[in-house]
Design a protein around this nucleic acid. Structure first.
Lengths: 216, 216
DNA sequence: TCCTTCTATAGGTGAATCACCTAATTAGGC
DNA sequence: GCCTAATTAGGTGATTCACCTATAGAAGGA
């Protein structure tokens, strides 16, 4: 008997998952909740084998939730079902201690397969996802020099310029604010673009949002 | 016997909904798909009474899908299950010809109740949602002048330009893509900025992200 | 210590874009 | 028929972008 818990912010969908799993004789659904606090209590159950987490975003809160769950009950293995199966999201989930990941294209059969696999002590990733992870790994190998793509590679001054620019300041306004020449502001932006390998201002805005420099 | 069709981009969740509905003796699940093209074919089935649509975003594409579905088979009443139950989203869904809306907090019982209600010719909205709609209606009365702040105020062409620009296309590239002059592209962007009362490109990117024109 | 690398600063130049306009044509609504 | 909006495109000057170069200082390694 495999004891399973379900968490889904979308209550109806959680109930749906439960309905699927209850069809399998080996499976026993211990709980199914859309409430985070209740989840934290239920998750401490010593009998719990598998915890199915359906997530709808990849916010810091959500990722922290996964980490916390893996800490409060290491015996319960985490199976994350994610609607968003972009490369970025998958990497985030894998990093956050999940033992298995299913994407939006997963089938009922795959869900059941994944649970058995996790129960047997192995990790499970949907084929499309494992391919993705592999690609990511290969890319890492191919660039021995870490591209240093993140915020860390930027200097304080560069971030400051980016921050003001993100507030819709013009170059002139930024220059006035920082008591430097407009050309310097321009140079800073150029250096940032070069360093981050971005093609356009649109991508720079996206980067800034991802890194919490610009609020949306 | 109520004949039901299910569409959910998240295949697993669609299967889950099917599992719930199959437990009800009165219900007959005709199909359950995550494929838009197949949905379009299945939806034409004359026997179809209820079409359950689980949606994960409120992009123009998704809303158009709802409208199209209501047109190709007016007999099949649409029940939309939305993860996002913000006021904005609900209004969009209601506008798009859906006969019923369920939010993320809906229960299995409510789903079944909603289907019976729709079958009987009435509309169904979760309580939290109907309250919201009411509030919105009151607000509308209070502001006779439509603010027209959103995506709706933009023309198809303007959205198209915005979409390409959001893909980091330069004005010249957009012009080539759409077979128009660079100046026209520029004019479109100016009109967009004016209409939306945006101060900078940064704000335009934010707007585009909020409205699912740019993916992040 | 010297050498290298990174950073902050600022300038040059030409192309592209922005921010203001005007304006013709067309389509839709009242 | 009139009015409004959309699409198209051009003018002009300011601003910014995308390439460079260049200097002074700081940090770090051989």
């Amino acid at each position: 008997m495999i004891h399973i818990g379900i968490y889904n912010e979308h209550k109806l969908m959680g109930t749906g998952l439960a309905a699927i799993l209850e069809q399998v004789p080996d499976f026993d659904v211990l709980f199914c909740t859309e409430n985070k606090d209740k989840l934290m209590v239920f998750a401490q159950n010593g009998n719990l084998n598998i915890l199915v987490l359906a997530i709808h975003d990849t916010s810091v809160r959500t990722m922290n939730l996964i980490v916390r769950l893996s800490l409060i009950n290491p015996k319960a293995r985490l199976l994350v079902v994610s609607f968003d199966n972009s490369e970025e999201t998958i990497i985030k989930i894998v990093k956050s201690k999940a033992k298995g990941v299913l994407g939006r294209e997963a089938s009922k059969k795959e869900l059941i397969e994944a649970i058995y696999t996790l129960r047997n002590g192995f990790d499970y990733f949907t084929s499309s996802i494992s391919q993705m992870v592999l690609n990511q790994y290969i890319n890492k190998l191919e660039t021995p020099e870490n591209k240093n793509e993140g915020l860390d590679s930027l200097s304080e001054r560069q971030i400051e310029v980016l921050r003001l620019w993100g507030k819709s300041y013009s170059n002139q306004e930024i220059a006035d604010e920082l008591f430097i020449s407009v050309r310097t502001v321009d140079a800073h932006k150029n250096h940032i673009m070069q360093k981050l390998q971005l093609k356009s201002m649109v991508e720079l805005v996206k980067f800034s949002i991802k890194n919490n420099i610009i609020e949306i």
